[in-house]
């Protein structure tokens, strides 16, 4: 029986690292620009489809992966430069709703370009695996976890140590003050959109390979990823990472408990809901907080 738990633990960590990875991309952008980007999943999906397309044209595989990252960056920065500035001083909820519009546009465009057929995105690392607690784990899954951890560490170091990181933090704390201080807002924000776009591109590649290469499936992965980000209160990168992993493990473990097995996909949303309630504890029933 212990072996079975081990199986599900490892499997859950593998899925959880995907939630975490996407959640981290959301939090990085949210922290530095105030945008909770619901189009994040659509960016990832577009990047994955671009990678498939480039590979389908017969390009050298690493070129197709690079194309995915470029697609993520371009699509993300395009929104960041063209649309986001017009909404810079609006409430966070309005900013988030606007990204829903971008999500719908990207979904529509992907549907027009790539009709529905069997596609596969395989990475060379899919074929190499190590065995952990009786579960074979492909290197691609290890990369997903590795990228998530690395992104957290790198971003923490970057925000702490570098001038640009300091600017980002200043911007996130108070946009008006940051502007007064002469911080190059546009430059800093563009960088944030770019970093988050690149992460979306990478996430899309991994999702396309590990989950399913289907635009709608990858696009709506943003919902469980948001759940992971909520566990990190939309601000904490380490908490988002842990939240994603925790959700993945619980979800996998529930498979073992038959009555709840069909409902296990609810795990991210239940955990996020409980987290929000816990964050609201102590505030009075009636008065709503600002956001």
């Amino acid at each position: 029986m212990l072996k079975v738990y081990g199986l599900f633990l490892v499997s859950g960590l593998a899925v959880g690292s995907l939630y975490a990875l996407a959640g981290i991309g959301l939090v990085i952008l949210r922290r530095s620009t105030g945008f909770l980007n619901f189009a994040y999943g659509a960016l990832a999906a577009a990047a994955a489809m671009v990678a498939w397309q480039v590979a389908d044209w017969g390009a050298w595989p690493p070129l197709s992966w690079f194309a995915a990252l470029v697609a993520g960056v371009v699509l993300s920065v395009a929104y960041g430069r063209l649309v986001a500035p017009a909404l810079a001083w609006r409430e966070p909820a309005v900013k988030a709703v606007a990204t829903l519009g971008y999500m719908l546009i990207l979904l529509g465009v992907m549907g027009l370009i790539w009709d529905d057929e069997l596609r596969k995105l395989s990475l060379p690392t899919d074929k190499i695996a190590v065995t952990l607690l009786g579960v074979r784990v492909t290197v691609t899954r290890l990369i997903a976890l590795g990228v998530a951890v690395a992104a957290v560490i790198a971003m923490i170091l970057y925000l702490d140590r570098s001038r640009m990181g300091l600017n980002m933090r200043a911007l996130a704390d108070d946009r008006d003050h940051a502007a007064l201080l002469g911080i190059p807002i546009i430059k800093v924000e563009t960088l944030a959109w770019g970093i988050s776009g690149a992460l979306a591109g990478g996430t899309g590649l991994l999702f396309g390979s590990l989950v399913r290469l289907e635009p709608t499936v990858i696009t709506f992965m943003v919902i469980p990823a948001t759940a992971a980000a909520i566990v990190g209160r939309l601000t904490s990168l380490p908490m988002t990472l842990l939240g994603g992993l925790f959700i993945g493990v619980i979800e996998a473990m529930l498979t073992l408990y038959k009555p709840l097995a069909p409902l296990r996909a609810m795990t991210p949303f239940v955990i996020a809901g409980l987290m929000i309630l816990w964050m609201q504890r102590g505030t009075s029933l009636t008065f709503a907080s600002k956001d």
């Binding site: 919902i223 469980p224 949303f269 907080s289």
Partner: peptide
């Protein structure tokens, strides 16, 4: 009720996702 803005939107999104699975 204590929430509005972004967090309320997120709560409702979580509820929608829950209901879909339900």
């Amino acid at each position: 009720l204590r929430m509005r803005g972004l967090y309320l939107a997120l709560v409702t999104l979580m509820v929608a996702a829950l209901a879909q699975i339900f």
